[in-house]
């Protein structure tokens, strides 16, 4: 808690190991195919040391959350989609529940009216 209080609002906070694991795992899921440690580091973004990413990849691999293939002397890592169908079915069922159940779900972002969508698109374009 003390570390958060001392964080300046401008400089990005240093990330704990658990948080980094989530970020690297997310990057592997977002990628189209297996990534080397160097590519994974790029995909995560931010200024992470190569060794940090390498360590996290090994840790995720040992936990069985990601898989890897050997590519010459390097390894390429990919997200393990073990219980893919079961989880997807469960989630699909959850999302198609009635109104009571939908109201409970706290979404990151709900979908938009046509007008809102236009506004947001304009905003994203300005940013580029």
């Amino acid at each position: 808690m003390a570390t958060r209080a001392s964080r300046s609002s401008r400089t990005p906070a240093r990330r704990a190991a658990g948080e980094l694991e989530a970020e690297v795992l997310a990057a592997l899921w977002a990628a189209d195919g297996p990534l080397t440690a160097a590519r994974a580091r790029e995909a995560v973004g931010g200024e992470l040391a190569y060794n940090t990413v390498q360590t996290i990849l090994v840790r995720l691999y040992e936990k069985g959350l990601i898989g890897r293939v050997a590519d010459g002397r390097r390894h390429e890592y990919f997200a393990v989609k073990g219980a893919e169908e079961l989880a997807a079915e469960q989630m699909q069922a959850l999302l198609s529940r009635g109104r009571d159940r939908q109201a409970v779900l706290q979404r990151f972002a709900t979908s938009l009216s046509v007008e809102d969508a236009r506004l947001l698109q304009a905003m994203l374009r300005r940013r580029r």
Binding site: E21, A22, A79, A83, L86
Partner: peptide
């Protein structure tokens, strides 16, 4: 719990959703 252990659980679905 069908998506392994750890903080982050990812489901292979195309619709964009995130829940705590």
């Amino acid at each position: 719990s069908s998506c392994g252990t750890g903080e982050l659980a990812v489901v292979a679905l195309a619709a964009p959703h995130a829940f705590a």
